[in-house]
Design a protein around this nucleic acid. Sequence first.
DNA 1: TTGTATGCGTTATCAT
DNA 2: ATGATAACGCATACAA
Lengths: 333, 333
Amino acid sequence: MKKRLTLADIAKAAKVSLMTVSRAINNKPGVSDEVRQSILTLAEEMGYHPNYIARGLATRRTATIGLVVPDNTNPFFAQVARGVEDGAYENGYNIFLVNTNEDPVRELAALDSLWQKNIEGAILCSSRLPTEILEEQIQRFPAVVVVNREPRKPMPNLISININDQRGAQLALGHFLALGRRQIAFINGPANSTSARRRLEGYRAALRSAELPLDPQIVEACSPDMEGGRLAAAALFARLPKIDAIYAFNDLVAIGAMQACEEAGKKVPEDTAIIGVDDIPLATIVRPRLTTLHVNLRHIGRLALRSLLDIIKGDATPAAFQIEPELRIRDSA
Amino acid sequence: MKKRLTLADIAKAAKVSLMTVSRAINNKPGVSDEVRQSILTLAEEMGYHPNYIARGLATRRTATIGLVVPDNTNPFFAQVARGVEDGAYENGYNIFLVNTNEDPVRELAALDSLWQKNIEGAILCSSRLPTEILEEQIQRFPAVVVVNREPRKPMPNLISININDQRGAQLALGHFLALGRRQIAFINGPANSTSARRRLEGYRAALRSAELPLDPQIVEACSPDMEGGRLAAAALFARLPKIDAIYAFNDLVAIGAMQACEEAGKKVPEDTAIIGVDDIPLATIVRPRLTTLHVNLRHIGRLALRSLLDIIKGDATPAAFQIEPELRIRDSA
DNA sequence: TTGTATGCGTTATCAT
DNA sequence: ATGATAACGCATACAA
């Protein structure tokens, strides 16, 4: 690990002042083209790379952003993260990835830590922070994009991205109804999740407009993973054996429910039709292939990053993006 | 976004010198317990958090490491990344996540970028860099852990972590042979991957010791994902219809091969037995459930992080960890 | 135990 | 067009 080169080293070698080198490297005016060229090639030869820590201290710009997710192992967030990282790469940014494990304490600690490292902005996915605290945190950062969360009020440095869950629920329930299903259960995500709340609303609204009764017993919350889905479906079957359809919080939960069906000897979709949300790659791998609400997750990631950079650059107005899901009918419903 | 507090602010408020505050905050000797306590509570009240950029410039320690993977969307790397991040969190570190997309150019660019941000170390997973270049890069960083790659020679700041692929191949082939299979194909990963090379060696060795002929036609390389596996298996079936077993580079490839079997009307495992590698969560979700070589991926991530910190702290000797895979017999073989 | 000067590598600002 | 100097916020080394 040889010594790092600094601007001073290049300046000495080029027999010019440190500032001339700085200007040349940063393509700033104030250097003759001739000198600039010679400095640039010299720096290249010597293998100079600017130190972003020092630059960051001087400019407060670090070309770094934070990406906060509950669990990067969850295909949903993995896809979003990939979109974010791709976009970051294209724009010369690096991302700090942190997992919260759905733990608000850990999430808060992560934000502290990122803040201390002078990130220029943060993308918060499915934050589990209470609204007031979340708003406090948002104010600490120059720019924030929240995914899967609806801010109470517009904030100047905030853009939100949400899936249109009401619409999604309508699409799913509409399909079930068209298939003649009437005992449609809903396996929801964690109660403190915004998407969970919205999907429940959408579910209720869809039942209402179909003039179907809403039995609170037929809704079950669970942790948003396969195991959660399996357990929740099992509980539902125990309570209400005649359930003939399940709308699941997401694809993972839906697949868990499929497993529960298998264990309970129920055939999918004949006995129990199932629809998920997200259309993660898994959805086409499981058998029967999962009918689900498609969303372009990677695109959401890219959109989140672009929006964040827009806020940072100052040419963004507070906005709330709605992503429209699209029903992909496959084999499970 | 209110102004950041600095040591100077706290010092002024506490009516002591900046250095006393610094010492108090960092739990360094040279401050009376009394003064330290009052400073600490004051800093807490005022909401002071040290600026890591400034600290990093002064100390060259940034509490930051880089994690380089081909694709964080691939469950293998997602699991490893989670292990790394968990460990990092526990140790007060943050990680830069970068995807290379298997592109050496992008990988190199990523390393440049991370280096410029003074990371204390890097974890390189399945690097696609040519050996010489990789070694050059390793020398740039204070500490490096490579996963899925065997260094030619020990380096003082390097620890490698590899799955024992020879052993893995033996376990897989042994199982096939015990099942009476004799036409055992191998779908390998990209040629420039070290694990691919080693798995091929293991495959050959296993065939040799079983005194079975080795037909080069029965080995096919592919990109290490489902689509690659599907295509490769289809090509193999076209060439050698009597294949009765497939050893796949990893689980994704194995699942792709399963799909090819489905398309070719071959039953798994009756007509074609299949064994994968890694035991990603998917392996138990697909039907038939995949027989595979189990490796604790999250644990590899944690191990990588621990090793990296050991090197950074200076209490590590060059080492090469071998992770022993374990055959998990399920339904596909 | 406490405080002062100095440097980390860069950019901003003000001279020349 | 170039250069000198002062920040940026902190820690190291040394002085009191």
